[in-house]
Write a protein that binds this DNA or RNA. Structure first.
Lengths: 366, 366
DNA sequence: GGTTAGCACTCGGGGCTTTTGAGTGCTAAT
DNA sequence: ATTAGCACTCAAAAGCCCCGAGTGCTAACC
C-alpha cells in the first residue's frame, strides 16, 4: 500500500473526524480543516482514489466517505498519532488502580470493571492459564463443632478459602495435624502430582481423619485444576449504548448476549505477546468470531510474575478511538503489572479511626 | 375504594392482559375472555367508571385502557392471584442457589446476579448494616521476607484476607505472637471498643512489632466500620432492554445510570420487615427517588442469623409481573435464609480427579 | 333498572409522496 | 495540477392521507 503524503493526510483527517462524529465525512468538511489547504474538489479526487484502494467507502452515492476496516488498519499501523495521556488521565488511572486493588480476592472482576470504567468501553479480563500454579500453604482454622475453614495460599500470592461444615464435631488438634501434613507433603506440588495414591497414603499415615483429608485434597485439586483453564470476565457492557452504532437495540442485544457468555470469551485471541504492555488491535472482520465481525478489540497483556498474567481488553465499534484507547489500555496494563508485582505498597490507612505507623527513631510529624 | 365484584373482575382482567401484552387493552379484548360474559358496551361503561376512580387511564382518546399506579396498587393488594411456583421453577431456583453459594467470598454480588438470572429483571442486593459484627479470630500467615497475610474470621462466618508487604523482613514467631494477642484482646470486640489506647497498650506490651500491630488493627477497624454501612450491588441491568417500555434508549440509559451508582442504591427503602421472606412492593410514583418514579420495585428480606441479613430486590417497569415475581423473590429469599444459616452442606466433590469420602466400616460400592 | 346493538367520532400509526440538502463526479477554466 | 461550477443522486425529514381500533352516546331491549 503506497500512499502519497497527501493521501495519508487526507485519510487520517477522514478517520479522525469520523471517529469523533460517527457520520460519513464529506469533502468540504476536510477541505478547510487542518493544515491541508485544498479545495473540496481536490479532496474529492483524492478520496475517490482512496476509495478504489479500498480504504474508504460510501454508504450510498450521495453521502460522505467512511473508513473501511482496511482503512482503519492502515490508520492504526501507520497514521495514528501516538496519543499522549494527559496528566489528569494518568492520575485518574493511578488513583483508581491503587484504591481498587487492595484485596486480591476476585482480581479478575476487579480488573475488568476497572478497565471498563477507565476506558468507557465494555472491558474483558482474561486470566492466562497458570498450569504451574501450586499451593504454597494450607491452614485449617477451626470455627466450632464441625465447622472449619480451609485457607490456602497460592504461589501467585492470592488466597482462597472455603467454609466446610461436617455433620460431626472435629478437633482442632486434628485439623492442625492434617494441615501440617499437607504443608509437608502436598504443598508446592503441581496438580498432577496430587494423586489418589498420595492422598491414600496420607490417610493411612494419619489414621481416621473423619474425611477431612479427602475434603482438603479435593479442594486443592479443584483450585489447581481451575487454574489450568483461562477464566474470563466481562464488565461495563452498558457502555455499548453510548455509541450510536448500537442505537439499534437488536444489534446491541445480540452483541451483549455473546459477550455475557463467559465461556465464549475464553476462546478469544491469546496473542503471543512478548512483554507486558504490548498490545494487539483487531479490527472488525479480522476477528474470527462471527459475532465480533463488526467490532474492534484492543487487548493488552499484563504480567506480574510467573503465576500471574492475563489480558485486559476492550470491545467497541470499529469506529473506535484507537489512539487514545490504546494508550490508556497499555498504561493500565503496565501499571497493573507493576502494582501486582510489587504488591500492595503500604496498607491503606484510611477511613474511620486509624493509626499511624511510626517506626522507632522517626520523628512524629506535627 | 369500594369496587363491585364485577368491577374487580374487569380491573383484574385488564391488568393481567396488560402485563403480558404491554399494550392498551380495549373493551372487546376483555368482553369474551375469561369467565365474565358481557358485551363490549357493558365493559366500556364499567371501564369508564374505573377511569373516574383513577384506576385506569387512556393514553389517548381512541386507545384502550392502561392501569394507573393506583390501579396496580389495588391489584397488588386485593386482586392479584397468588402465583404458585411450578415445580420446574422451584427446582431451577434451588439448583442455582446451591451451586452458586459455595464460596462466601463476595456474597453480595453472587446473590444479586443470581436473583437477576432467576427473575429476568435487574436485581439489587443490599446488605443490612451489621453494627454488631465482630472479628472472632485473627490469623497471620507468613509468606516470606516482609510479606504476610492477615486472615480474619468474622462473626457472620465469612472470611476476609489481605496481603501485606513490609519493606523489611518479619519474623513468623513475631506474627504468631501478635495474632495470639489479638485473639486474646481484640477478638469479639465491637468496633467502638478497639480504641487507639487499646492498641497502644498492646503495642507497649509486645515491644517493637515493626508496625505490625498498627497494620492489623487498622485492617480490623476498616472491616468493622465497613460493616456499619449498607453495601449495595446491582446486576442484570441488561434485562431492562427486554421490556418494551425501555425501547427508548435514552430512557433506559437514564435509569441505568442511576442504577449503576452503588452509593445511590444504599438509600433505597429499608422496609421494616418482620421476618425473612416478607416482601414489599413499591409501585411507580410511590418511590421517593425521582429516577424511579415510573418503575416498580419488589424487595424481600433474607435473614441468616444475627450478623447476616439483607435485601434482595428487582426493578422493572410498573407493568411488572407482580404476582409471579413476588412469588419467586419470596421463595429465593427464604431459600437463601435457609441455606446461609445451615451453611454449605457437604463440600462439593466435583470436577477433575476427586476422592470419595469413605468412612470406616462402610462397604465400598462397586 | 341493567344490558346491548348500533353509530358517529377520535386519533395514533403505517404507508406513500414530496422536499430538502449534503455530497458526489465530471467538465471546463485557471 | 488545481479549482470553480453544475447537474445529478439519494437518504432522511416532513408532510399527507387513510385505516381501523377503540371510544362515548343513544336508543332499543329484556
Amino acid at each position: 500500500m503506497n500512499l502519497g503524503e497527501r493521501q495519508k493526510r487526507i485519510l487520517r483527517a477522514v478517520i479522525d473526524r469520523y471517529i469523533e462524529s460517527a457520520e460519513p465525512v464529506g469533502s468540504k468538511a476536510i477541505a478547510h480543516s487542518n493544515d491541508l489547504n485544498l479545495s473540496s474538489a481536490t479532496i474529492r479526487n483524492e478520496m475517490s482514489e482512496l476509495e478504489t484502494l479500498g480504504l474508504l467507502e460510501q454508504p450510498h452515492t450521495s453521502a460522505g466517505r467512511v473508513p473501511t476496516p482496511q482503512g482503519y488498519r492502515v490508520y492504526v499501523n501507520e497514521l495514528m498519532q501516538q496519543y499522549r495521556l494527559t496528566l489528569a488521565e494518568v492520575e485518574e488511572i493511578n488513583r483508581a488502580l491503587s484504591s481498587r486493588l487492595r484485596q486480591l480476592d476476585n482480581l479478575l472482576e476487579n480488573i475488568g470493571s476497572l478497565t471498563a470504567r477507565l476506558t468507557s468501553y465494555p472491558a474483558l479480563s482474561v486470566s492466562a492459564p497458570t498450569p504451574d500454579l501450586s499451593i504454597v500453604r494450607f491452614d485449617l482454622i477451626h470455627v466450632d463443632a464441625g465447622l472449619f475453614i480451609i485457607v490456602v495460599m497460592l504461589s501467585n500470592k492470592t488466597v482462597k478459602n472455603k467454609l466446610v461444615n461436617l455433620p460431626h464435631p472435629v478437633d482442632s488438634v486434628l485439623l492442625a495435624k492434617v494441615a501440617a501434613v499437607f504443608n509437608a507433603h502436598v504443598a508446592n506440588l503441581p496438580e498432577s502430582d496430587i494423586t489418589p495414591s498420595l492422598i491414600a497414603s496420607i490417610e493411612r499415615a494419619l489414621g481416621d481423619t473423619q474425611g477431612i483429608v479427602a475434603i482438603v485434597a479435593s479442594y486443592a485439586i479443584e483450585i489447581l485444576s481451575d487454574a489450568k483453564h483461562r477464566e474470563a470476565h466481562i464488565s461495563g457492557t452498558t457502555h455499548l449504548f453510548e455509541h450510536p452504532e448500537y442505537r439499534d437495540i437488536e444489534k446491541a442485544q445480540r452483541l451483549m448476549r455473546y459477550l455475557s457468555d463467559d465461556t465464549e470469551l475464553k476462546h478469544l485471541p491469546s496473542p503471543d505477546f512478548e512483554d507486558a504492555g504490548s498490545m494487539k488491535i483487531i479490527i472488525g472482520p479480522e476477528n474470527l468470531v462471527e459475532e465480533l465481525k463488526d467490532t474492534s478489540v484492543i487487548v493488552a497483556r499484563y504480567d506480574a510474575g510467573d503465576d500471574m498474567q492475563g489480558l485486559i481488553g476492550i470491545i467497541g465499534p470499529t469506529r473506535m478511538d484507537y489512539s487514545r484507547m490504546a494508550a490508556r489500555l497499555s498504561f493500565i496494563a503496565q501499571s497493573l503489572s507493576r502494582l501486582l508485582r510489587q504488591e500492595t505498597p503500604h496498607p491503606m490507612l484510611g477511613r474511620g479511626q486509624n493509626f499511624r505507623i511510626r517506626r522507632p527513631g522517626q520523628t512524629p510529624d506535627r
